[in-house]
Computed example of a mutant assay.
Amino acid sequence: MIGYEFLYLLAGGFFALWAVLSLRDARPGNAAFWGVLAASFFFGSHLSDFANGLLVLVLVGIAGAGWVKRSTPATTTPQEREISAARLGNRLFLPALIVPVTAVAGTLLYNYTPLAETGLFEARRETLVLFGIGVLVALAASIAWLRPPIAAPAEEGRRLLDSIGWAAILPQMLAALGAVFALAGVGDIIGGLAGAAIPEGSVLLTVVVFALGMAGFTMIMGNAFAAFPVMAAAIGIPLLVEQYGGNPAVIGAVGMLAGFCGTLLTPMAANFNIVPAALLELKDQNAVIRQQVGTAVPLWACNVVIIYVGAFLLWS
């Protein structure tokens, strides 16, 4: 049965490869950081919480000491990439489409055919596993089509990863932080403060505070999935759903969208805002965020209206 362990091993394998390449190029800090991260993926499921915590502290120590440096592996020049892009045009995006197509089509094919009876994939893990398989298929297709040097995918991956540095693992770390906050009762504390500050019966104001909290916590944590358990426990469930009788589906779904508006506005969302800047080699690493402000703010306001109308006015 294939489950999360497959994804952990797959990710660990890539990080281990980049650690070896960094060690070969005499970059011990990079090698140590990606090597420890690889160990976390390889053995994390079999280690105690304390041991996993020590691995995280080692990662923080290496990054905090500034030992993770930008690398310059041998790769194509900007001129060569421009020539290749001009020759292939938008067809370059075809391999990227393989990943979502594999995940979606594979999930439907598995769940709605006799394949589901084989028990090949762990229950409720099919899409994520197929997503990982899609990455491998896309990589193989790209190599077969473009015929780069055999080491090119590894070197290009390392170049991008080292350009981003330790921020590449921010989504993983911040998602874990959201779970820690929820378990620590942060949501209950915020809920108590919000309940005392918001006048009784002010549904619209409560919706605004909920949506604002989703965006704000997302900007702090860099991930709406990390902010949601906190704000759901603080305001979403006890006030909007239980006290005012709002539609939980609308509150949950559109509340996440309000959080994603915060994603557009924060450098903490490294995978959305720092990676594109690194890919495009922009001088201003916040250039992507500046372009998204005009979308994020009005979209957040629309989400407030949708929650209020859809979860309360139309629901009642």
Rank of each mutant, 00 (worst) to 15 (best):
Y4N: 11
L7M: 02
L7T: 07
L10S: 14
G12E: 15
F14P: 07
L17W: 15
W18A: 07
A19S: 03
A19E: 05
V20M: 01
L21K: 00
L23M: 14
A26H: 10
R27G: 06
R27S: 14
G29R: 14
W34H: 03
L37T: 06
F41C: 06
F41T: 13
R70T: 13
A74M: 11
T75F: 08
T77P: 08
P78Q: 08
G89H: 02
N90E: 14
A96D: 12
L97Y: 14
L97N: 01
L108S: 14
L109N: 03
A116E: 13
G119T: 02
I133W: 02
V137R: 06
L139T: 11
L139W: 03
P148S: 11
A151M: 07
A152T: 05
A154F: 05
E156S: 05
L160R: 04
M173D: 14
M173H: 04
L177W: 10
I190V: 00
G191I: 04
G191E: 05
G192D: 05
G192E: 07
I198S: 02
V207H: 05
F228H: 14
A234M: 03
G236S: 05
L239H: 07
E242C: 10
G246A: 09
A253E: 07
G259W: 14
C261K: 12
G262V: 06
L282P: 03
Q285D: 15
N286K: 13
I289F: 09
R290K: 12
A296V: 14
L313N: 00
